[in-house]
Design a protein around this nucleic acid. Sequence first.
DNA 1: AACTATTCTCTCGCTCGACGAGATACTTGT
DNA 2: ACAAGTATCTCGTCGAGCGAGAGAATAGTT
Lengths: 161, 161
Amino acid sequence: MSEVENPQVENPQAEDPMRLIHLLRGLTVELDLFGAEFAARNGLHPTDLRALIHLLDAGRAGEVVTPGRLGEALRLNSAGTTGLVDRLERLGLIRRERDPEDRRKVRLVVEDRAMELGQGFFGGLIGDLVGAMGRFDAAELATAGRFLRAMTEVVAAARRE
Amino acid sequence: MSEVENPQVENPQAEDPMRLIHLLRGLTVELDLFGAEFAARNGLHPTDLRALIHLLDAGRAGEVVTPGRLGEALRLNSAGTTGLVDRLERLGLIRRERDPEDRRKVRLVVEDRAMELGQGFFGGLIGDLVGAMGRFDAAELATAGRFLRAMTEVVAAARRE
DNA sequence: AACTATTCTCTCGCTCGACGAGATACTTGT
DNA sequence: ACAAGTATCTCGTCGAGCGAGAGAATAGTT
């Protein structure tokens, strides 16, 4: 019997939790860098990209986004938010529209150009990711999903203290 | 037989690839926000935090980090790197030391204070994450690891074009 | 209806992180 | 010794984001 046996009743191929932690962090680092490089290549700042993602998500969910909501989501104060919206509007990615029902509000409307931009770039990556998922069967994907949800839940809980 | 049987072919609970994509992105967003809030609470900027992580990683691997290497890893130019190192040094998190073998070089030495900072904060999160992993058996953790590695590989490959 | 409080967005002035260009210090090859 | 190369730092500038507060519209109270 080698000393490799019986590491608390587990097999030698068992995944070390710390390895998984580092994998999680490594993945987020890669995704961040990917986003940052995409942003830089298109004359955007990281914040602009995050804003765009938020706007596209909200649009897909059919929600109306105002500068206030956007700034809150991105943890910007009102001055920073105005600057951000100015930038995105100047780039032709979004458009301001006064809300006819409450004229204090401004609706941020995403232009087609922004969707094409997001699609054209992230679309390729998403396709590759989905392709790589093809090497996993349904049960494995379900396990991965459960795992990701569990980890996300922990981080979100930690964030709320 | 209930509809829960036969998961391989068209199970209603099967994980939709796009759901997994959004989970991945959601997780990176949560981790980013967690880091940003930690940084803000300690008077650090996101860049400082990234630098600290890089330095701690390198230290654990026994590598010597110079301002040049650090700036390269963080995609900063030399001026920005000097500013970053100044900041970290002013905060007492690192220390500059001239390399006695090649006196053009500067070694960045991490102070104990920085390790305590990183440990004290990320330590709690890591503990929670490892705890949540306890709800998965060895085979499931192995699957999760394989999945994370596959996704990381795809993103890294996309980044290299 | 007028008056006050509240909500939402924007303007102004400022700070400071990051950039480009170039200076300085040290090392290596001839 | 001298030129070329490498590592770091200095200087001037830009611009994203902050704090404070102004302006515009709505909601609530009497």
